[in-house]
Write a protein that binds this DNA or RNA. Sequence first.
DNA 1: ATCAAATATAAACAAATGTTCATGTATAAT
DNA 2: ATTATACATGAACATTTGTTTATATTTGAT
Lengths: 191, 191
Amino acid sequence: MKTTTRREDFLQASLQLIHEKGFKATTMRAIAERMDFDVSNSYNYITSKQDILELFLFRISQEFHHAMDNILASSYAADEKLKQVISAHVQVSAQKPYEVALMVNEWRNLKEPKYSEYVELRSQYERKMSKLLRAGIKEKVFKQVDIKVATAVILSSIRWLYDAFAKSKNTMNPVELERQIVALIFGGVMR
Amino acid sequence: MKTTTRREDFLQASLQLIHEKGFKATTMRAIAERMDFDVSNSYNYITSKQDILELFLFRISQEFHHAMDNILASSYAADEKLKQVISAHVQVSAQKPYEVALMVNEWRNLKEPKYSEYVELRSQYERKMSKLLRAGIKEKVFKQVDIKVATAVILSSIRWLYDAFAKSKNTMNPVELERQIVALIFGGVMR
DNA sequence: ATCAAATATAAACAAATGTTCATGTATAAT
DNA sequence: ATTATACATGAACATTTGTTTATATTTGAT
């Protein structure tokens, strides 16, 4: 079977390099060099450098949205939903740390109109999280916290995950990690 | 009195622009244009573009370290210390949101040896937070959480603050914000 | 009024960068 | 064997970018 590997290899090399150096600092020549061919050949696989970024960013964003949508549409209680959202973040961060890294660090490098599109997706995701929290408060499973603050705190508190997995893919146990994080977000640090 | 305003104006314009566009995307010409003078004149105030970044980054980093050190050296209990660390983050983020933004987003653009220096400062800060948490667990005021995870979660959960203040300098009330965040980190979301 | 420091301009530079074009070679299906 | 498709090369391009150099003007203290 032909897995059209060449293009995928190129994209993986790009992803790796962008993660290492940042999007702006990653030159087309550097990617080509890592693939052991000339710069110009890169344009047989993509039509512009921006393409690479857009490709990864919108794909991984969609993945998060899908997970979130399925969880919200379930009949679980709000606390179980929140647990599952956290679980999804841990799992995606574990399986695709470099893509998540782009989501955290490189989305600013998108150009219009993709930039605005992406910012909107990001806002939508935040709104979905807010919705979950609001429901949980109404269900009386969550405290009466400020929704905006809680949304920011919770989403922000899991944004470092990709870094832990990017550094050590094997040593980390996603299941135990999830347990720890859920414990903290649910119950805080105080005894 | 002479407030040597010219250089400071230049640096403020730089900071503003870097916050807007990112360090790499901010050109010396763009800064000069905002100051209404020629590019070359910029080099009467700095010796290189890197200088600008280093200047802001190490200055603000020191500010956080100072605050943390004073808190750790106090005789407060661990939970009160943690509260004060959070308070310091809120205040610095409120007063210098653009500098904090650089700390979050642009430190990767430092070049060696400053890059390694900065990464070390960052690690030190994390270690100080871990120390605080470890003490709190021993004092039995904190739960027996995983120190590494708790450090990452807590520090990460307050990294968005600068953004809230950069967007709306006046509408945000730092005191109330601090209260909300402390409540979440101390007690979690569950009722 | 003089003189030094601060502030500004104009021109030029070397290097880096994304991208294109014309062309060539390997591969696999017909 | 022919042909279409995938994969590759080399040269060249127009811009952009950080920085330097030489020189001028403004400003404030003496």
